[in-house]
Computed example of a mutant assay.
Amino acid sequence: MIKPFRVDIPQADLDDLTDRLTRTRWPNEVADAGWDYGFPLARLKELAEYWRTGYDWREHEAALNQLPHFTTEIDGQNIHFVHVRSAKPDSLALVLTHGWPGSFLEFLDVIEPLSRDFHLVIPSIPGYGFSGPTHERGWDITRIARAWAELMRRLGYERYGAQGGDFGSGISTALGAAAPERVVGVHVNYLPTRPDPDAGLELSATDEARLDKIRHLMANRPPYQALQAAAPQTLGYALTDSPVGQLAWIAERFARWTDPQSPVSDERILTDVSLYWLTATAASSARLHHDTPRRTEPCPVPLGVAVFAYDITQSVRPLAERLYDIRHWSEFERGGHFAAMEVPELLADDVRDFFTHLAGSAQER
């Protein structure tokens, strides 16, 4: 059963948040620390004070409630999603999937341009936001992809496309593998390409530089990723009990993974952090790093790739083409890991180009 959903956070939860922020116990910081030790104290205090005294959740809640929200239960798990239908009844449907530490909020600025030509289904990953915590093992990207296939079936979509970044990229390609007869294509704005010494490929200087960056990351696994993969429950105690801890954990990723020319606003960061805090999903969202295997899954449907200059890594096309049916490849000098929030116009245009050309190719055949 699919049920309408309205965002309505109890006032007691907002009052508790304000109280906890007021009573924050701050650590010290060494002189001239900068970013050498992590998120700078002065910047975090600035963000936390604005969250406590200037940020208005109710304003953002009212704006969110202008969207059509729904919930349904799939495979024993509550699933929240936004469903925006295009004014064109025969439009292709797209399922848009976020990642960590994002949420369905990532796509707010692409809803209007994309819904001109597509029906949009924007779910919250199980364990994230209004989908609520997961309660059992095994919610990896493959299981989530199967849930998305069931969600699209319930909504009556026989054929549809998928788009995502971060975990949303893996979920989208896994959806193409889970339902290849229904998924017309997958567009991603994050596609890790591991070095393959046996590939025998001659790579450009640019691609070699990208591979060096990937090798460095593989040899020096980011601390957040290692901790969430190894001990998400242990981390969850701290983040679920301290709003400033949750703020620092997420805001650092926004600071490090975005294009300095297109930073995500403090308002949008605090709305995203508030969503994690108010739904108590720090631990359950982190479990996705633990439960998802670190291997590349095949995807038999056509793939479109958008590469953004300030993302964590940039894809190497010759390596990607050995694994995927690449039909579309774009390179952008602007934008980072949160492309839908940083450069929504660029991402929306690229998504539209990929699926429009894909439909045209299908008609020609």
Results as ranks from 00 to 15, higher is better:
residue 216 H to Q: 15
residue 217 L to T: 14
residue 217 L to H: 10
residue 218 M to H: 09
residue 218 M to L: 15
residue 219 A to K: 11
residue 220 N to G: 12
residue 220 N to V: 11
residue 221 R to V: 15
residue 221 R to F: 13
residue 222 P to H: 12
residue 222 P to N: 11
residue 223 P to E: 13
residue 224 Y to Q: 11
residue 224 Y to S: 09
residue 224 Y to G: 08
residue 226 A to G: 14
residue 227 L to W: 09
residue 228 Q to E: 10
residue 229 A to V: 02
residue 229 A to S: 15
residue 230 A to T: 15
residue 232 P to V: 09
residue 232 P to E: 10
residue 233 Q to G: 14
residue 233 Q to F: 12
residue 233 Q to H: 13
residue 233 Q to Y: 12
residue 234 T to S: 15
residue 238 A to V: 08
residue 239 L to S: 01
residue 240 T to W: 03
residue 240 T to Y: 03
residue 240 T to L: 03
residue 241 D to L: 10
residue 241 D to G: 05
residue 241 D to R: 00
residue 242 S to G: 05
residue 245 G to V: 04
residue 246 Q to G: 11
residue 246 Q to C: 06
residue 247 L to I: 08
residue 247 L to P: 06
residue 247 L to C: 02
residue 249 W to C: 10
residue 249 W to E: 02
residue 251 A to Q: 00
residue 252 E to L: 08
residue 252 E to G: 10
residue 252 E to P: 08
residue 252 E to D: 15
residue 252 E to C: 11
residue 252 E to T: 10
residue 253 R to M: 13
residue 254 F to L: 07
residue 254 F to S: 03
residue 255 A to Y: 09
residue 256 R to V: 02
residue 257 W to F: 15
residue 258 T to Q: 04
residue 258 T to K: 05
residue 259 D to G: 00
residue 259 D to N: 08
residue 259 D to H: 00
residue 259 D to A: 04
residue 260 P to M: 00
residue 261 Q to S: 09
residue 262 S to D: 02
residue 262 S to F: 03
residue 263 P to E: 04
residue 263 P to Q: 03
residue 263 P to T: 01
residue 263 P to F: 05
residue 264 V to S: 01
residue 264 V to Y: 09
residue 264 V to T: 06
residue 265 S to H: 09
residue 266 D to V: 06
residue 268 R to N: 01
residue 269 I to F: 00
residue 270 L to R: 06
residue 272 D to F: 06
residue 273 V to T: 04
residue 273 V to G: 05
residue 274 S to R: 07
residue 275 L to H: 07
residue 276 Y to D: 02
residue 277 W to D: 00
residue 279 T to R: 10
residue 280 A to Y: 05
residue 280 A to E: 11
residue 280 A to S: 14
residue 280 A to R: 12
residue 282 A to F: 07
residue 283 A to D: 01
residue 283 A to K: 05
residue 284 S to F: 03
residue 285 S to T: 09
residue 287 R to F: 02
residue 288 L to M: 13
residue 288 L to G: 03
residue 289 H to T: 07
residue 289 H to A: 11
residue 290 H to E: 14
residue 291 D to C: 02
residue 291 D to L: 07
residue 291 D to M: 04
residue 292 T to K: 03
residue 292 T to W: 09
residue 292 T to G: 08
residue 294 R to H: 12
residue 295 R to G: 08
residue 295 R to H: 15
residue 295 R to W: 11
residue 297 E to R: 15
residue 298 P to V: 11
residue 298 P to N: 11
residue 299 C to L: 12
residue 300 P to R: 14
residue 300 P to Q: 11
residue 303 L to A: 10
residue 304 G to V: 07
residue 304 G to R: 01
residue 304 G to M: 08
residue 305 V to T: 02
residue 306 A to I: 06
residue 308 F to S: 01
residue 308 F to D: 05
residue 309 A to R: 06
residue 310 Y to S: 00
residue 311 D to I: 01
residue 311 D to Y: 04
residue 311 D to F: 08
residue 311 D to S: 08
residue 312 I to N: 08
residue 312 I to H: 05
residue 313 T to I: 14
residue 314 Q to L: 12
residue 314 Q to A: 10
